[in-house]
Amino acid sequence: MVTLTHYLALSAILFGIGAVGFLVRRNALIVFMCVELMLNAAGLAFVAASRYRGLLEGQLTVFFVLTVAAAEVAVGLALMVAIFRTKKTTNVDELSSLRG
């Protein structure tokens, strides 16, 4: 019997992997992908909850998250291209000119 807990646990694991990836990888593009993975994990939790509660709102939330993620990726990648043009790198550790 697959329960909500199964899905929530899977979601938590995926989220955790995404979070660790975000903190460990230095390639800005992969860092970005890790954010997408985390969003995706959250989406899974939403849809699972939606199924087990019999509510549609979870799916709608995922729908909105998807569109927002699309917008975010577009802008983020454009930023990255712009940064690459001037800095010639996508290493996040070399993009630290806002150091205090």
Partner: peptide, 8 residues
Amino acid sequence: AERVGGAT
């Protein structure tokens, strides 16, 4: 940008 170089 498949592989990223540089120091950390």
